[in-house]
Amino acid sequence: MIFRWHLRLTYLFLYGPIAVLMVLSFNRSGLPTAWTGFTFDWYAKLTEADALLNAAWNTLIVAAASTLLATIIGTMLAVGAESRRKSSALDALLFAPMIIPDIVLAIGLLSFYTLVQMTLGLHSIVLSHVVFNIAFVCAVVRTRMRQIDPAMLEASRDLGASEFTTFRRVLLPNLAPGVIAGALLSFTLSVDEFIIAYFSSDNTPAATTLPMQIFSMIRFGVTPEINAMATIVMLFSFTLVLIAQRADRKAITG
C-alpha cells in the first residue's frame, strides 16, 4: 500500500514539472506566478519568432540526416556484432557513446574538426550526431537480432541465397520493428541534443539548432514563448518514443 503511494508520488515528481510548464504555456499573463486566464497567444507568437522557427527547421534537417545515416550504419553494425563471438572491445566501443560525458565528446569532436580544418555548419552537427545515434540504433537492433533463429539465416544461405538476398529477404523483415524503433529514438535524441551540436557548429543562425536557440534564450530568463515551444517539443518527443515502443516493445525499456 505504502509502496503504491510512493509510486504515485514518483509519477507526480516525474510529470509534475512538465505539466506545470505545459499549463503555463496557456497562461495569459505569461508569468509563472499567477494564472490570469487561458490563451493561445504564445503559440501564435511562435509563428513570428523567426529565430526559433529557423532553428526548428535546422533541427529537423539535422535529425533526418543523422537518423538516416545512423539507422543504416547502426543496423549493419548490429548484424555484424551479433554474428561473431562476443568481443568485449567491440561492446565497449558500442557502449562508449552512451556513457561518455556529452561535453567530452563535444570538445573532442571540435578538436578533431579544428585539426583537419573542416568548416563547421549543419553538416558537422550531422557527423557528430551520427556517433551517438549509431550506438542507440545498434543497441535496439542487437536486442532484436538475438531473438532471431540463426537456423533461418542458415537455411537461406544453404538454399543458395546471396548474403545480400539473405539480408533483404530474411534478416531485414525480421529486424524491421527494431530498426524502426531505433530510427525513431535516434530522431528524438538528435532533436533534443544540445551540447554536442553547440560545439560542432559555427553558431551562425544557419547552423543553430532548436536546443541551441532554447539554451541561449533560457539563460536570459523565462519567456512565455519558450514555454509554448517547450510544450510542442515535449509532445513531439513523447509521441515519437511511444510509437517506437509500439514498434518494438523492448526498444525503450531494454
Partner: peptide
C-alpha cells in the same frame, strides 16, 4: 513505459521546468 518516457525526452526542457519551479517567484 510511463517511468522511462521522460528519460527519452528533451533534457534541456526538463531542466528548464525546474528553473521555472524553483524561481524566487516560482
Amino acid at each position: 513505459v510511463l517511468v522511462i518516457l521522460p528519460f527519452w525526452s528533451n533534457y534541456l526542457i526538463r531542466t528548464y521546468a525546474w528553473m521555472v519551479l524553483l524561481n524566487r517567484e516560482g
